Simulated scan of single mutants.
Amino acid sequence: MGYLKYTQYVYILFAAYFVYDGFTKLSEGNDTSTLSFIIAGMAVFMFFFRRRFVKKFDERNKKQ
């Protein structure tokens, strides 16, 4: 289960990509820039959710 510690950072990479994508679409005048920002926000939320989940999982394993 060691890979769970590293998969949370994939969400940060996705968030950075979608923020970049949102700003490029915003500068071009596309209407779909808000969708990119929403996806980036969800990716940041998932990062913190997974981070909390991994900490709880580690604490549970330490108790056993």
Rank of each mutant, 00 (worst) to 15 (best):
M1D: 14
M1E: 15
G2D: 12
Y3N: 07
L4V: 09
L4C: 07
L4H: 09
Y6T: 04
Q8C: 06
Y9M: 02
Y9T: 00
V10S: 09
V10K: 10
Y11P: 01
Y11V: 03
Y11Q: 14
F14L: 13
A15Y: 05
A16C: 05
A16H: 00
A16T: 04
Y17M: 07
Y17E: 02
F18V: 00
F18I: 01
F18A: 00
F18Y: 08
V19G: 00
V19Q: 00
Y20A: 12
Y20I: 10
D21I: 03
G22W: 09
F23V: 10
T24M: 13
T24E: 12
T24G: 02
K25A: 08
K25C: 05
K25D: 07
E28W: 06
E28R: 07
E28H: 07
G29I: 06
N30C: 10
N30L: 07
D31V: 14
D31M: 12
D31H: 12
S33P: 01
S33I: 06
S33F: 15
T34C: 03
T34W: 08
T34R: 09
L35W: 01
L35E: 04
L35N: 03
S36G: 04
S36M: 07
S36C: 12
F37C: 07
I38T: 11
I38M: 10
A40R: 03
A40K: 04
A40D: 04
G41F: 02
G41K: 00
G41A: 00
M42C: 03
A43E: 11
A43T: 05
A43F: 08
V44C: 09
V44A: 09
F45M: 09
M46A: 08
M46K: 03
F47T: 05
F47N: 02
F48Y: 08
F48T: 03
F48R: 01
F48Q: 02
F48K: 01
F48A: 01
F48N: 02
F49Y: 06
R50T: 14
R50Q: 15
R52S: 13
R52H: 13
R52T: 11
R52W: 08
F53H: 13
F53Q: 14
F53D: 13
F53N: 12
V54D: 06
K55W: 02
K55C: 00
K55S: 05
K55A: 08
K56P: 01
K56Y: 14
K56H: 15
K56R: 15
F57A: 15
D58E: 14
E59D: 12
E59R: 13
R60L: 11
R60Q: 13
N61P: 06
N61G: 14
N61V: 11
K62F: 03
K63A: 10
K63F: 11
K63M: 09
K63H: 07
K63C: 07
K63E: 11
K63P: 06
Q64K: 13
Q64D: 10
Q64P: 05
Q64R: 11
